[in-house]
Design a protein around this nucleic acid. Structure first.
Lengths: 344, 344
DNA sequence: AATTAGCACTCGCGGGGTGAGAGTGCTAAC
DNA sequence: GTTAGCACTCTCACCCCGCGAGTGCTAATT
């Protein structure tokens, strides 16, 4: 347990280091926060904080920098995240008002807004249902031997796939097949459709097979489409100024690794995993080496009919936790509101 | 006009510089290419090449580096791009065989293959029709007051948008409206539909309006979805080792600027613009400052019914033009073949 | 017991000097 | 036209050094 004064001091050090990205000196904190004690006293206190592992010094004659343990203490006990100012809330709500109805657009927009407000990388996954229900299916003739299968699933998710036909089929014939299959299967889940065990003739069988495959591969995804924004701004942070640091970050968050990064963040983040709750994973708390320089603030969100997604922000460990947590929490709330309003 | 020997020398210098990324010295070229003359002779010839602007030296005591004019001469007269080896062709064809029928997938795959083979950034736009034709339209009930409009356009392009309803409509009612509109408009272009000047009641009118808007905004795009790959590998090239160079490149090719970068490349590239032809734009030939360190190799491709797209590779001016041009040409051919096979 | 002034000590950083190495241009001979 | 030889130029890596920043310790003060 820390004394009152040492807590205070740790808070100052974190705030100051987040602001300046420079190790903070004893004299700097007495000056900036107009403390009624001398720098020598602060030095003594700093030595104690260092003994207990909350701060470290990069080298002998430098100021102090918070350790991951220090950040953790700060996040847990020191910071007081508060709601974004009303003006900003209104601006954000207005932006969402434009993108009515497209769940993927919401996620994309949420990522863009977070990135713009925080200058860190944000990753938002679109809402995704654990079990999907077929709303309707359509077959469209593209060419004599090629047809397009369009599936509309629960909650405006549209999937498509081309089918190569054994024999030419007209649009009318295709429509007939689609109508028949719709009458059988509309409103049902994969499991229900399988359970029905219907017999189908050649092309119908092919269609049903393709549709079930599509639905299953969709369900296999544990999240919807992921949107990443703000990489460029984050590269401007001083910790990534060197080329190699930058590369490491690109490797971590590059387009192709995104698929891997998400589940990782999630795996670490879903200890409480209750929708609406915000979790922070700080530096060395990450299981993967590559992320030990970064912190992640993550919040799952949920909506009606099992819709789930996650909002997360990745930044340097020296991030503004207070602002980040409050923005993530706020955006998570927005997503839940939207889902409720449209599908509730 | 260059003498035979100076041409040869220029070729060596380009080849060697592309390989090593180091200024090439007179002695280096006699050694590596076992020339029957001394380095002093080469120095004399180099001095002439420099007078005429084909090569430059970064500083007095360094070797020579090709200028943009030198690269241009090389591309125009010196290199002999040849088809990729049969084994590679087969591998690539095999990869495309997997992704049957999805035009966006083809484009994505083409970008990935180019990036992997060349280690430069590749940008491929999916095929896109100048004028689109409605194949069919479907309305799906999401919720009492929310419906989903799904448009299938010519060549497997699927668009969707949610509609907010004035009054609740059942799935059956929606299906009725869709059937009616399909019977009127299926197979027609935006212009044709507008010309028909049909009168519609409230919800039908809303649907038609939304559909036409979607189709028009689609037609307004001059290209389909763009896929960018290989950024990470290109960042490893020595010209981008410093942090600021890297940032500049990210700014140029970052996800958000992609929309802008494409038309730029295209605008510069469509002088001949005949499908299948390959154009190179080298360094300072770019109108925009930001690209003066880069070269672009670009080839439009075309298919039946006005489908168009472009394949391009962005690399440092010190790129392997021969390999790049041949790969771009080859991929362009592959795309045309695929389009013919599926929509011809 | 806590605080503080004073001071010696440590360390990183930037500037200037330097020597080696690379590569050229020129000159004179072939 | 070619080439050996050589002086010249320029970069780069290295080291040294002094400055400034900041600390830890000690002894005096409250």
């Amino acid at each position: 347990m820390l004394t009152e004064r040492r807590e205070q001091l740790l808070r100052f050090i974190v705030d100051e280091y987040v602001r300046s990205a420079q190790p903070v000196a004893s004299s700097a904190v007495v000056q900036r926060y107009a403390l009624p004690v001398s720098s020598a006293t602060i030095r003594n206190e700093m030595a104690r904080l260092e003994d207990e592992g909350y701060i470290v010094q990069p080298h002998t004659s430098a100021g102090r920098v918070p350790s991951d343990k220090g950040y953790r203490y700060y996040v847990e006990a020191l910071m007081r995240p508060q709601e974004p100012p009303a003006a900003i809330q209104q601006t954000i709500r207005h932006q969402f008002h434009q993108a009515a109805g497209e769940t993927d657009e919401w996620a994309h927009l949420a990522a863009a807004v977070l990135a713009a407000r925080l200058s860190y990388v944000s990753v938002v996954t679109a809402p995704h249902a654990a079990q999907t229900r077929l709303r309707s299916l359509q077959l469209v003739s593209v060419h004599d031997f090629v047809a397009l299968l369009v599936l509309v699933l629960q909650e405006t998710l549209v999937l498509q796939q081309t089918l190569t036909l054994d024999r030419p089929l007209s649009q009318a014939e295709l429509a007939g097949v689609a109508a028949h299959l719709n009458s059988l299967y509309a409103g049902r889940t994969v499991d229900e459709i399988r359970a029905m065990q219907m017999e189908h003739r050649s092309f119908e069988a092919q269609t049903v097979h393709a549709a079930l495959d599509l639905m299953e591969s969709e369900e296999a995804e544990s999240f919807g489409e992921a949107y990443l924004e703000g990489l460029r701004d984050m590269l401007l942070e001083p910790e990534f100024a060197q080329g190699d640091r930058m590369l490491a970050l690109m490797d971590l968050l590059g387009r192709s690794n995104l698929d891997k990064a998400i589940p990782l963040a999630r795996a670490a983040g879903d200890q409480p995993a209750r929708p609406g709750e915000v979790t922070a994973i700080i530096g060395s708390e990450h299981p993967q080496d590559a992320m030990q320089q970064c912190s992640v603030v993550i919040s799952p969100y949920g909506g009606p009919s099992g819709l789930r997604g996650a909002i997360s922000v990745v930044g340097p460990t020296r991030m503004n936790y207070s602002r980040t947590v409050s923005m993530v929490r706020y955006m998570s709330g927005i997503m839940e509101e939207l889902l409720d309003a449209y599908f509730g």
